[in-house]
Design a protein around this nucleic acid. Structure first.
Lengths: 249, 249
DNA sequence: CGCAGTCTTGAGACAGATCAACTCACGTGG
DNA sequence: CCACGTGAGTTGATCTGTCTCAAGACTGCG
């Protein structure tokens, strides 16, 4: 898509510009936004340092990240679990995975903070939300596209809520694989092959399941012949449309 | 807060103005927004007619509503459930409850449509999102507050996702009651009493549980002495802070 | 007062979690 | 280049929480 001859930083900025609404790409406003964006590089496994004070907007230029909500270590969580047993380990819910071109809004911590963690080497641009909006509001197209993307995220989040609320493990895994096929190789039917950038644990945490259950579901899909796997992370889907139907959408 | 002598419609519009950022309340922009807003009245149980074509923003002036995602009657849902049994009835996920002052964004239907249903007699103002934004984008304060509220909704939705992903029935009910206490009588500690505007079924659907489980959890809280109930919908919480801790926040 | 629908309570079934081995992939260092 | 070790992934046995199905009790309406 973008050039390769420039520095990684300029390259990332160019990608960011390309993500802006067409009319704003080469305008002054793009320069102003780029000026306040901080370029960052994360190695696989690294987390973007948290900032408890400011809401931020993060543009993913390359790589893959997960957005993790780290539940606080259950402060006084035992006071009430009279009879129950509760894992003392703080559980990490993976709220979403993000791919190049995505803009993620990271609110400052309130109930156990949000963190962006890289799954592979990742380049991103960080904006402070206030600064970004101060500039963006001068340009209707930009502010509207920002709003649109946040509404989009809301919609996605609601869809996932429905998943977590009603769907069985089988449904969830099928839907997960379907969406990964779309994201990673743009396929919606037929057969395709891709490399999952995230671990079983990440998948489990994002779907509200355990790794064992995820593993068993993969096994079941393998037995039926719907998918094949190679090594830890290579997945080949044989009938994507059948898989999608299994996901119940 | 608002007058009572005017017509219900004017009254609702006044409430809407009051919800705008201060600097915009009496400005021209408020008049323009009011001009495109359609006043609606819903009796308890009625649904706001869906609109498959336009995204809408709905301002709740009075009453209480639920936002329901009606899953399509599982078109070809059985093809894959080889061995499993699946409810044929279409399940209704309640995505959120809304109270006076809330602005709800209702996206046009995509995967099983969204509907707003009144829980008690409700007055609201409906805007077409495009029209609304065309006007709002002229005023930085308005567009930013719109964005802020949508980000807020996103955050709430994420919080709920975490709930549905990780929390036990007991946690969910405790958190639900805590948030209702805040919404309905502004309490965060001590004891308080309120009338739940929604049925057990609505509660169950919003938390991803069954009515039976909800009922049992209420019973448990009653036995512990944390709450008392009277009739179907009056709830008295004895130790709100203890309940909140039980919710695990 | 009586009916209809909501809520409660109980007994049993099942999906998924938990606990515990075991296997395998993949990077390391000899 | 291959042996090795570590951590990821798989598989199995059991256990628990929640759903299901089925009565029954109550609320609140006509």
């Amino acid at each position: 898509m973008a050039s390769a001859a420039l520095t990684p930083e300029l390259d990332s900025m160019a990608l960011f510009r390309a993500a802006l609404p067409e009319c704003a790409r080469d305008a002054v406003i793009a320069d102003r936004l780029c000026a306040i964006g901080q370029y960052r590089r994360l190695a696989a496994g690294d987390a973007l340092p948290g900032n408890p004070r400011e809401d931020r907007l993060v543009f993913i230029a390359s790589g893959v990240t997960k957005l993790v909500a780290q539940l606080p270590p259950a402060p006084g969580d035992d006071a009430q679990n009279a009879g129950h047993k509760t894992k003392v380990l703080c559980k990490n819910q993976v709220l979403a995975f993000h791919f190049p071109g995505d803009i993620v809004s990271v609110l400052r911590k309130e109930d156990g903070d949000l963190r962006i963690v890289a799954l592979k080497d990742t380049q991103l641009i960080v904006f402070f939300a206030d600064q970004f909006l101060d500039i963006a509001q001068d340009n209707p197209a930009v502010i509207r596209s920002t709003l649109a993307s946040s509404i989009q995220a809301l919609h996605a989040s609601r869809t996932r809520m429905m998943q977590l609320g009603h769907k069985s493990a089988g449904h969830r895994i099928a839907e997960f694989l379907t969406s990964m096929a779309q994201r990673l190789c743009g396929c919606t039917k037929g057969r395709c092959e891709f490399v999952l950038p995230m671990s079983r644990r990440d998948i489990a945490d994002s779907l509200g399941l355990t790794i064992e259950t995820v593993s068993r579901q993969f096994a079941e899909l393998r037995e039926i012949g719907l998918i094949e796997t190679q090594g830890r992370s290579i997945v080949r889907v044989n009938q994507l449309d059948t898989l999608a139907r299994r996901g119940g959408v």
